[in-house]
Design a protein around this nucleic acid. Structure first.
Length: 779
RNA sequence: GGGCCCGUGGUCUAGUGGUUAUGACGUCUGCUUGACGUGCAGAAGGCCAAGGGUUCGAAUCCCUUCGGGCCCACCA
């Protein structure tokens, strides 16, 4: 038995079931980008989603829905749209996921094997992500999905590094670095988060050299005592005046340190005297640099104390060492008291453990010397909404050189070898993908310094932002197609979330400027975050994410998309709410039923003489169209969604459709008057469908094909109309007021809306008289 | 401590100087009206956070206060 085909005639509600009937067809529409076009090019540097764990909470899916609406609307505005789909596949999260999934540790798995397992995880996760994108008919270029771990992408990342190396933009240095012991790598400032943790503030005494006096110091990091390089007291603090310039003896270690007056020491905190150690926190770094002190390193990269910490602490982990040193100090008789305090601790935002500051040999991208230029560029960039520009500017003002080397496996390899004889780095030519940890350098390579020919490859990888920050260069074929690049770069738009302004947006501007001396795009579109029903940001780590696939299955992709875009202005956070989503779904059913009504009447293609009632709704629709088209041009799809919903639900359906029903049925009207209604009904509804098509691609295309054309609505264009006389719209307002008055009157009289009523039609509504008499059954 | 953003009916949200402030969800009342009960019609509900100022006129501009969010710095 063949199931009855669901159509406008026999289905009352819009549903996911109806979407599934046409999803394959809609997803196979051809939007292939063509370089040889007369049209204006509109290109999107879309965020390649991070394939790092179980995919996507609803906030992310909502963001991609909005991006798709931007792409679709520009297409319908007649632009040639370059709409890439990418997958960000590098970095630590996938390593974590792979370790967990396979029950292995990166430390005891061979690099080759580990990478293979990561790739398997990624392929599986990527498939799920692509399925979600397709489930709501994301219309990006799925035929050319790019992957940041592909040989061609990694070759680009490496080439841009080599180019920057040659331009002197890469520096190498041992600097105190943020180091996460768990990740086993240095991390960028942007990856640090702060947390209030309970900790002990330990008060203990240093003896003063050649004196029987003692100075009291307070520290949260007593295990670094052996690295103490100076004691600071505030110059205005009278308690310590006598000690300034004296020498103190470090308890246990019996080493000498100076006591110096420095405004950094705050009299009101702790004992008023602070010991500076390499490196307890950022300030230690700043002070040691400022006073040009010698650093002593006590913690190694495994998070254990080294020989500098002394026999008693050597080999202990940091926390254990802290406990131990407190005991040792107590035995020594130096401890005055221990205070419990809340301490704002820098944490690795992935491992959730405190970071250590350890000097590492790392590569950096120079930022500080071009910071002013970057701020200028940020000001030149159009940012939507404008207010979010400040986030970028504020960050630029304080950003430092960017550490880019990572000691991990799954990332783009740093394309360098080092001469076995003298250690000089060997830099290969741009254009190829190099894997120095397992490959020899290009044949015939000689050390530029000592002419040696034996090399060892760098084993490190790049920070993943090194890859994703050149996405605009990859999708415009910077390395691979000069003509394509020259016609598509700089791109039109970077759409992204507000949460990665400091990272993706910032690093992209930096890198593209360094390589091309230009901004990578004209406009950045910064969306807010998806919040859960309590107003908290949805994130994988919090586990408060709502699964978008369940929501889409239940309410349909169009309802989800309409909800996503109508919920908040671009840039504002949006809270998930099932009842609002239901509201969107109701609207689609409303639209569906308007279409069902229209389908009952024959189509009227040729334009007859238009009655005043019809002229009113035609002019009103023009006004709505103009407002929506303008909003789409300004990359604001929030406005069209709400305007159209409002118009259809509060004007078009209750007032206009009721006004012309009788005429459309042809009862008591001339053939010409009937034709006017049928023509108007279809021409205005067609316009509304077109305006909605970028937002709700399923329902609009279904209706379009049943009512108007075999050719998909998504191949049509939307344009605005020339300004016209609006006086009829004012009369229309009076018309709607009159309708409400009649409805109220009938309600007061407790009679049915169908019943006869006697009421005078105002003079100004005479042009609508015939329709009104029929509509309200006026005697 | 510094910066940025925000504060509109129960909830969410438009609205940046001009008549009775937008819409949605929810609430209440009535209704099978030729597409829609996931509907239709109607109603209630807001001193636009508070105070002051500019203006003929302020939700809108300025100042102050209070409250919320985010960011930066600092917290030995």
């Amino acid at each position: 038995m063949v199931e009855e085909e669901k159509t406008l005639e026999n289905t009352k509600n819009w549903s996911r079931e109806l979407e599934k009937r046409i999803i394959n067809e809609i997803n196979s529409l051809d939007f292939t980008f063509s370089l040889n076009t007369e049209k204006e090019i509109f290109s999107l540097d879309t965020p390649p989603p991070y394939t790092s764990g179980r995919p996507w909470h609803l906030g992310a899916a909502a963001q991609y829905s909005k991006i798709d609406i931007l792409g679709r609307s520009q297409r319908m505005l007649g632009k040639e749209v370059l709409f890439p789909v990418g997958m960000d596949r590098n970095g630590i999260p996938v390593e974590r996921y792979t370790e967990k999934k396979n029950g292995i540790s990166i430390k005891d798995t061979s690099r080759e094997e580990f990478i293979k397992l990561c790739k398997e995880s990624l392929d599986e996760l990527e498939g799920e992500m692509l399925d979600i994108l397709k489930s709501f008919s994301y219309s990006g270029d799925f035929k050319n999905v790019y992957r940041t771990d592909s040989a061609s992408y990694r070759a680009l990342t490496q080439s841009t590094f080599i180019e920057m190396w040659k331009k002197g933009m890469i520096i190498r240095g041992t600097r105190p670095s943020n180091y996460c012991i768990d990740c086993g790598t240095t991390i960028a400032d942007a990856e640090i988060e702060y947390k209030e943790l309970d900790t002990n503030l330990v008060y203990f005494y240093f003896k003063i050299k050649d004196s029987d006096k003692k100075i009291l110091v307070a520290s949260t990091r007593p295990e670094l005592l052996g690295a103490c390089s100076v004691i600071l007291v505030n110059p205005t603090d009278d308690r310590f005046k006598e000690f300034v310039g004296k020498t103190a003896i470090i308890p246990i270690y019996e080493k000498e340190v100076k006591i110096i007056a420095h405004s950094y020491a705050k009299a009101e905190f702790g004992s008023g005297a602070v010991m500076i150690c390499s490196y307890g926190d950022y300030n230690d770094m700043v002070i040691i640099k400022e006073l040009n002190l010698k650093e002593t390193i006590l913690i190694d990269t495994n998070g254990r104390m080294n020989e500098n910490a002394g026999e008693k602490l050597k080999g202990l982990k940091v926390n254990k060492a802290r406990e131990t040193i407190i005991k040792l100090l107590q035995d020594y008789g130096a401890v005055d008291k221990i205070e419990k305090i809340k301490h704002r601790t820098p944490m690795c935002d992935r491992s959730k453990i405190p970071i250590e500051i350890i000097p590492m040999d790392e590569y950096y991208v120079k930022v500080t010397d071009i910071r002013d230029r970057l701020i200028e560029l940020a000001n030149e960039l159009e940012i939507i909404p404008e207010q979010h520009k400040q986030i970028l500017i504020n960050w630029l003002k304080v950003s430092n050189d960017w550490p880019i080397s990572r000691r991990r496996y799954y990332g783009t390899e740093i394309p360098l070898w080092y001469c076995n004889n003298c250690g000089e780095p060997l830099v290969p030519e741009e254009g190829k993908y190099y894997i120095p940890w397992k490959e020899l350098p290009p044949e015939g390579s000689k050390c530029s310094k000592c002419n040696g020919d034996k090399f060892t490859g760098d084993t490190r990888t790049f920070d993943t932002w090194m890859d994703s920050s050149v996405s605009a260069l990859y999708v415009t074929k910077y390395l691979y197609d000069k003509e394509f690049f020259s016609k598509t770069y700089p791109m039109t738009l970077r759409p992204q979330g507000i949460d990665i302004v400091r990272t993706w947006l910032n690093y992209s501007i930096l890198r593209n400027y360094q390589l091309t001396e230009k901004l990578p795009w004209k406009t950045a579109w910064i969306d807010g975050m998806g919040l859960d029903e309590h107003g908290e940001k949805m994130s994988k780590s919090k586990g408060n994410g709502v699964d978008p696939t369940i929501v889409i299955e239940k309410y349909g992709a169009d309802a989800f998309r309409f909800w996503a875009v109508s919920e908040a202005m671009p840039g504002s956070n949006f809270m998930f709410s099932e009842s609002r989503l239901q509201g969107s779904s109701k609207f689609l059913t409303k639209l569906w039923n308007v279409a069902r009504l229209i389908k009952q009447f024959p189509a009227q293609e040729d334009r007859p003489t238009i009655t005043e009632s019809d002229r009113w709704i035609i002019e009103y629709t023009k006004k709505i169209t103009n407002e929506c088209v303008d909003a789409y041009k300004k990359l604001n799809p929030y406005l069209p969604a709400n305007k159209i919903r409002e118009f259809i639900w509060n004007v078009f359906a209750p007032h206009y459709l009721e006004l012309i029903k009788a005429r459309a049925y042809g009862e008591g009207f001339s053939e010409e008057e009937k034709e006017s209604a049928l023509y108007t009904l279809n021409s205005t509804f067609k316009e509304l469908l077109l305006l909605l098509a970028p937002i709700t691609p399923f329902i609009t295309d279904t209706i379009w094909r049943e009512l108007y054309s075999k050719e998909s609505i998504h191949y049509q264009n939307i344009t605005n109309f020339p300004e016209e006389d609006n006086t009829i719209l004012e009369t229309g307002e009076k018309l709607m007021e009159f309708n409400k008055k009649v409805w109220n009157l009938k309600k007061e009289k407790k009679i049915s809306l169908r019943d006869k009523i006697s009421i005078e039609i105002p003079q100004e509504l005479k042009p609508f008289e015939k329709d009104l008499i029929k509509m309200h059954n006026i005697e």
